[in-house]
Design a protein around this nucleic acid. Structure first.
Length: 334
DNA sequence: TCTGGGGTCCTCTTTCTC
DNA sequence: TCTGGAGAAAGAGGACCC
């Protein structure tokens, strides 16, 4: 979906159409938080997702800042996914605003299917999306990104050299800022340059698993199947304080309430956990985690809270705390 | 002065168990 | 009772995704 959160807001408040809309945090650009989504009008000012709200405000002071309304976006997301499932039951969810659809067994022309999907989403939900068509997920994802917004891009078997190789390595799924910078340092900037690197060298530079992955990905090879069902592996809650704090009461109270929330979450979805992990980030942004595995699987708030505070005891609180969080893992269906 | 929140997966190290 | 090794499990951190 194109600028999904912003588009949903513009749909329910048409007066926002054509304006720079910035969704993030609590919607107050003077407070801590980052941009979740910026409308294309706001992107013209250099605003993009993951940017601190305060920075976005400096770049675009006349922008309309709104809080994230996750429930509303989830509702709309479900409608989008239902439309998709009507075209093929084999669908993989990729977060709230993306999905893969396997249309291998469809009788209709893929491009025609894509046009119909775009049309239905536009007519029923008044939203724009970008679709990529290719023989595997890796290439379809790259394709969907090539002509945003409101795009429809097909990558065919013979297109790898012409279409994929000139692209920067960052366009490959799994290559983030760190890997991009590292590859740049060894003079690899494009996917084609990556593809020119012998497998042994890649493994030497990046390890066995990642080296092999990039070797194949740079050639457009991806055999991974669509994942239509999966079980959660962990559940977590964390908050960044509006001001860094060294007040024990505040820290303890916050930790207790986060623990209660995340315990409610797993209870609701009928899971038990065995491992709790405390996460703490100090004012200097140094982040630590301390884990504690319990003797039994549990969803008891008291037992989990006890383990969380045990974990907290393993960390020296000498600096002010910026963020605190709790993760429950080692999950098992109740 | 700034850097969210909810996840997954991978790698390396430490600890436990036999 | 002490020592050591192997393999599994747990713990910690980091990179990446939306």
């Amino acid at each position: 979906m194109d600028a999904f959160f912003a588009a949903v807001e513009q749909k329910r408040r048409p007066e926002l159409i054509g304006k720079p809309v910035i969704i993030g945090g609590g919607g107050d650009p003077t407070k801590r938080g980052v941009v979740s989504t910026a409308s294309y009008e706001a992107r013209k000012f250099g605003v993009h997702s993951a940017m601190p709200l305060r920075t976005a405000y400096k770049l675009c002071p006349h922008g309309i800042f709104l809080p994230v309304d996750y429930e509303e976006y989830s509702r709309v997301s479900k409608k989008v996914k239902n439309i998709l499932r009507g075209f093929s039951p084999v669908m993989e969810d990729v977060g709230i605003d993306e999905a893969f659809l396997d249309i291998t067994n469809a009788s209709e022309d893929p491009e025609e299917i894509a046009r119909k999907i775009k049309e239905r989403i536009r007519e029923e939900l008044e939203l724009a999306c970008s679709i990529g068509i290719a023989e595997n997920k890796l290439l379809a994802k790259i394709a969907s990104d090539l002509q945003k917004p409101d795009g429809l891009t097909i990558i065919r078997e013979g297109d790898i050299e012409k279409v994929i190789w000139p692209l920067p390595v960052r366009k490959l799924w799994g290559v983030g800022p760190k890997t991009e910078a590292y590859l740049k340092s060894i003079n690899i900037n494009t996917i084609g340059e990556l593809a020119a690197m012998p497998l042994e060298n890649l493994i030497g530079y990046l390890g066995n698993s990642y080296g092999n992955y990039l070797y194949e990905a740079s050639r457009g090879i991806d055999e991974s199947p669509l994942v239509t069902h999966w079980e959660p592996k962990s559940s977590s809650r964390e908050v960044t304080f509006q001001r860094d704090t060294n007040d024990w009461q505040t820290i303890a109270r916050t930790l207790a309430s986060l623990t209660k929330e995340v315990t409610e979450d797993i209870k609701q979805s009928r899971y038990l956990c065995k491992t709790v992990t405390l996460k703490i980030r100090f004012e200097d942004f140094k982040t630590y985690t301390r884990a504690r595995t319990m003797d039994e699987f549990t969803d008891s708030n008291e037992i989990i809270r006890k383990a969380v505070f045990e974990a907290l005891g393993k960390i020296e609180l000498k600096k002010k705390v910026r963020l605190i969080g709790v993760r429950l893992s080692n999950l098992k269906k109740a």
